[in-house]
Design a binder for these strands. Structure first.
Lengths: 130, 130
DNA sequence: GTCTTATTACCACATATGTAGTAACAGTTA
DNA sequence: TAACTGTTACTACATATGTGGTAATAAGAC
């Protein structure tokens, strides 16, 4: 079962769970910055949709309120998002990277880290070949 | 005027124009791979929406058919997409890059190129400071 | 046990998007 | 000019998403 597709608002709700663990609707809602906080019922509706998608589930009940927790990992959900996005660019990461550089979103430090990551992965694969 | 937001299908239609220049609806439609080719009227509807968004416009008429051309550049449209996407990740490119590496979408060659790009940009900025 | 209040359950609605049909009309051709 | 063919113009409709209201209900306070 591939991670379900998440919309922007859905993603923000999942973030609240990934960052803070099991939470009630109220808690999720209150974690939104006050200026852009959706109505309680909006969060409720969206959580309901996430439940249908099996992105989260009810883990227990405290008082009258259900407590929800993520059923898909952040890494998994992000993977899906990134893959989908990459597909829009014909699967080529290069133009995306170039844009990040232009936009000042990447510095030499970041690049070093990516390079190290790549080398580690290569070494890993090398070992596994034996 | 910031580049308008483009949906997936809209983007594919713009690609057709970016790649081949001014085209008729028919030409755009026939450039879709046969297996996933939307109906003529679907392309027509979507082109109409792109027209409203000012992403493309009619440049002339040949026989009974209008000829459309892009009004926003590929670079501009992609910029917008990328920025929006980046925002989903809190503006941090690092996790996205990491995913690209994991997914095998980046090799050392790509990284070299990005690094060179970054250095060039830095040099450029340095010069402009004077 | 009743009152109060938070929560749930359910509903409604606007916009964006993908999808495509139909009618009218313009160009081309016999 | 009358018929044929391709285009346009307009309409329709399903799904996803953001948004939030209302009624019923369950917990806790007295």
């Amino acid at each position: 079962m591939p991670p379900p597709k998440l919309s922007k608002l859905e993603l923000r709700i999942m973030e609240a769970l990934w960052d803070h663990g099991p939470s009630s609707i109220r808690e999720i809602q209150e974690r939104f910055p006050a200026r852009s906080r959706p109505a309680y019922t909006t969060v409720q509706t969206t959580v309901g949709r996430l439940e249908v998608k099996k992105a989260l589930g009810r883990v227990k009940k405290i008082g009258g309120a259900h407590i929800y927790d993520a059923l898909v990992s952040r890494a998994n959900a992000q993977s899906r998002l990134i893959d989908e996005f990459l597909a829009l660019f014909g699967g080529r990461a290069q133009p995306i990277m170039a844009h990040f550089v232009e936009a000042g979103k990447l510095n030499l430090e970041d690049i070093r880290r990516v390079e190290r990551h790549l080398r580690e992965l290569a070494a890993q694969n090398e070992k596994e070949k034996t």
